[in-house]
């Protein structure tokens, strides 16, 4: 149980590490443009990445439910 918790904490730390803002130097959107644009870029990236997974996953789940 304790080991589990430690691993979770490690995973959270690993997930957060890449997001440390720093001063994003090579980033045109977050340096020159406003942070809103950068947020929208990130948001649409996440949406576009997750959408096919939800669509295909949803279809697979629905078909599986129909069968069983």
């Amino acid at each position: 149980m304790r080991a589990m918790k430690f691993r979770n904490r490690l995973l959270v730390a690993a997930a957060v590490f890449p997001l440390i803002p720093g001063t994003a130097w090579a980033c045109p959107a977050c340096m020159v443009g406003d942070p809103k644009t950068a947020g929208i870029y990130l948001g649409s990236t996440l949406v576009m990445s997750a959408l096919p997974l939800f669509l295909v996953g949803g279809l697979a789940y629905w078909l599986w439910r129909r069968h069983s």
Binding site: I20, G22, T23, A24, W25, A26
Partner: peptide
Amino acid sequence: ALIVWFNIKQTN
């Protein structure tokens, strides 16, 4: 790899 990246592209 991430540390190297961070040092080159993300620090100031």
